[in-house]
Design a protein around this nucleic acid. Structure first.
Ligand code: FES
Ligand code: FES
Lengths: 172, 172
DNA sequence: CATAACGCGGACTATAATGATCCGCGTTAT
DNA sequence: ATAACGCGGATCATTATAGTCCGCGTTATG
């Protein structure tokens, strides 16, 4: 199990599609089907992004999600925190106070402030978070656009169209 | 569950005691009892440190562990890797290749190299690891020594003595 | 030489988190 | 009225962590 889970990977990949589709909102089902991931699981991910103010939702038929901010204003850290809930890199058990030499009542000097080991972990966590905060959705989208051939956007548009038509056909 | 687990906290706290006891080796049982943590669990942690070349073991009665290197040569990163086994911060599921627009056969440009999102995570992981690598056991020991009153080392020595005597008494 | 304190490693358990599914409710375009 | 939406709760399977237990080989000590 990794610290940054699959939910974040799903979320970021979805957000990238939202960057390229500033018009009509996209439904979480379509986003899931389009990327070959679990629709039910993605449906649990998006409300977290909405609560964090990263996406805005519209209910009802033809509803779905769109970005609530400009891509440059959405850092990767914000997405990670939205999904993971600011869980710490390291969970200190405060063993320092349990030393047998204290006999149950640890002196003040032993438990005052943050344990030196814990402090090292907090510095490492901050380094990680600073790195994540320095990258925005726009940065990633830019990198990807340089890899993608220009005609691919057109292919994607066609796929979405076909899916909409398929729904109408299924109805008839 | 945190990425850096309790095993690392236990290991580092034990290693700090080993720094202060360069003479006779300390047994994992004594280290556990002294710190109020599970002896059976600590017995699973130390072999990992030994395999990583951080501590050296001596078997038989009066055996135990001592540091295999100078404290300045033991980075926190080395301890984390020894316990956690270099597990990644983020575990990419390679969803980018599953896009429905590819129809099962993703083109080369889509799967070539590392995904832009994965790359961001790898940079964050590197930042974390660099931070952990920059801190050594000696650094932490130094910080701790500044907090600890000078008479405490004496108290610890006495505790170890009493425990040895208790073992002899228990035998008689 | 017998014993007890060691390290070592495998099997095992309990608990929690993750990834994922299913269902029912309220909303809304058609 | 219907079907496509988002929303939230309940539930499940799998996996990782934390912890236990037991038996084996080694070694100082009496
Ligand atoms: S007590 Fe938790 S890291 Fe020292
Ligand atoms: S495919 Fe895993 S992060 Fe993009």
């Amino acid at each position: 199990m990794a610290h940054i889970t699959a939910g974040v990977e799903y979320a970021l990949h979805c957000l990238l599609w939202l960057v390229d589709s500033p018009g009509a909102p996209l439904s979480s089902r379509d986003l899931a089907d389009f990327q070959g991931i679990s629709p039910s699981f993605l449906a649990k991910v998006f409300p977290k992004l909405e609560k964090a103010g990263i996406v805005a939702s519209s209910e009802g038929v033809r509803g779905g999600y769109r970005l609530a901010k400009r891509p440059e204003a959405i850092s990767v850290l914000a997405v990670v925190d939205a999904i993971e809930g600011e869980k710490p890199l390291f969970d200190c058990q405060e063993i320092r106070g349990r030393c047998a030499a204290f006999g149950g009542r640890p002196p003040a000097w032993a438990t005052k402030g943050v344990c030196a080991i814990h402090a090292v972990m907090l510095r490492a966590e901050k380094a990680m978070r600073d790195s994540l905060e320095s990258q925005t959705l726009a940065d990633i989208a830019g990198t990807l656009e340089r890899k993608m051939p220009p005609e691919f956007s057109e292919e994607v548009r066609r796929w979405v169209e076909e899916r909409t038509e398929a729904r109408i056909r299924g109805k008839a």
